[in-house]
Nucleic acid binder design. Sequence first.
DNA 1: TTGCGTGCAAAGGTTTTGCATGGCA
DNA 2: TGCCATGCAAAACCTTTGCACGCAA
Lengths: 139, 139
Amino acid sequence: MHKSNYKTKQREMILNHIAKYQEAHFTADDLLFHLKENGHTIGKSTIYRQLENFITEGKLRKYHLEEGMPACFQYVENTAKCTEHFHLKCTICGRLIHVVCQELDGMADHIRTHHKFQVNHKKTVLYGKCEDCMDTNLK
Amino acid sequence: MHKSNYKTKQREMILNHIAKYQEAHFTADDLLFHLKENGHTIGKSTIYRQLENFITEGKLRKYHLEEGMPACFQYVENTAKCTEHFHLKCTICGRLIHVVCQELDGMADHIRTHHKFQVNHKKTVLYGKCEDCMDTNLK
DNA sequence: TTGCGTGCAAAGGTTTTGCATGGCA
DNA sequence: TGCCATGCAAAACCTTTGCACGCAA
């Protein structure tokens, strides 16, 4: 397992990027392109390895939106307060919706008691279409 | 776009398979392996192309649940009564559980009506711990 | 006979890994 | 100094595509 305690130039570069574009979701290639564009030097494997580190540290969330397409990443502002509610991710516009809802908590209870399965809110994302994209014929 | 009206040996082989293992989820490789095991000859591209045809025809449903993992397919016996279901994936042992449950369908309804979000069952996976791994301290 | 279906191999794309080198502590 | 991080290239992985041949209609 990675530890990634080292403070390297590359790690800082990525941190700066994700801190700057907090709300945006980006792919590994977006990040690579952006950094090189700004005159930085970084390898693709480093990008992937550091992104994985940040996920482990809870700084990033990873989304898998479409088959064959690259995964996308998004900054997690406050890890602690995001553990006990569900997340809805729009596959069209990319919007992330945080849902605090008793009824959905009840559903997690139902799954635990009736299906013997303990849902991890932190790792689970419900994919679909948000209000604005509901009428879209896409995917 | 494919038409696939031709009644070929390969198409029939696949149809026989999916009719036999109706409820099961299978990947393209599962199917390939199973057919070869039974002494049949078939190419991988034919598998992919026919599976796509069956999806178009509404005979199959395709789930692409995880990045890097192969997509899995499921027979749709009767499109009309076709019940959606959720997928639970154990993050410890990797088991994938298919849950058909009215109460969970109700949850999808709740999300749609109250949170204006239409959940896509084919892309959504609920991550957590299954019964056997519930007591594990891991992850 | 016409043209779709098949199968092989190669390409496509993203992500992972092996290994020598370089940099943090 | 010791060990982790980096970067390049190659591999791994699933899926799609090009093309010649074969088979259904």
